[in-house]
Simulated scan of single mutants.
Amino acid sequence: MYKKIIVPIEIGSIAKGEKIFRKAAGLLDNGGEIILLNVVEDIPTYVAIELPGNIVEDAMKEGRDRLHDLVAKTGISATVEVRNGPPADSILAAAKDHGADLIMIASHIPDIYNYFIGATADRVVRHAKCSVLVDR
């Protein structure tokens, strides 16, 4: 059905990420590509002063390692990518850069600030130029 699928995965919710990764594989055309994406958010300067200088780089390395482990565990072929910045913006930029025809994103249980779907998923749905599948 789809030639290029972006699957953003939050490392703190790797089990949920594995679930949507497997679903994405079922939607992929022969010869298609899945891009597993982890986004490491920037740390505000007033907080970063109190933290080790390499915390973002370490988080990006951990994200890359965990996604490679997920690929190995599932046996599903995928490209692993880690970006730094605001999650929704980074997901949308990855979709544009790769010419994705689907973003498959997980949503969490909403709170008062993002009642229907998660804030990141909500922003991706509203601004994506391709189809978006939100997995609950």
Rank of each mutant, 00 (worst) to 15 (best):
K4E: 02
N54T: 11
D29T: 09
L27R: 11
G75S: 07
M1Q: 14
E10Q: 10
G75I: 03
K3T: 09
S77W: 06
Y2E: 09
S90I: 10
P8K: 08
E33M: 14
E33W: 06
C130T: 15
E50V: 05
I103G: 06
D111T: 15
A88D: 15
T45S: 14
L133R: 09
A106Y: 01
I103N: 07
D135Q: 03
V124W: 12
H108T: 03
A106I: 01
G85N: 04
T79S: 11
N84V: 07
R123S: 12
T45W: 13
T79G: 05
K23V: 00
E10T: 11
V82H: 09
M104F: 13
P110W: 08
G118W: 03
N30M: 11
I105Q: 02
D122T: 11
D69G: 04
K23C: 00
D42R: 09
V39Y: 07
R126Y: 08
N54R: 13
K96R: 13
I49D: 10
K73H: 11
T74G: 03
A121C: 08
L27M: 15
A78H: 04
V39I: 12
D135M: 02
A78G: 05
A93R: 14
V47Q: 11
E10V: 08
N38R: 01
V134I: 10
I11S: 04
V39F: 08
Y113D: 11
I20C: 06
V56L: 12
T45K: 14
I55L: 15
P44H: 09
D122Y: 12
V80A: 09
L133A: 11
A119M: 08
Y115D: 08
I5T: 02
A25E: 02
D29K: 15
P8M: 07
H127E: 15
I109A: 14
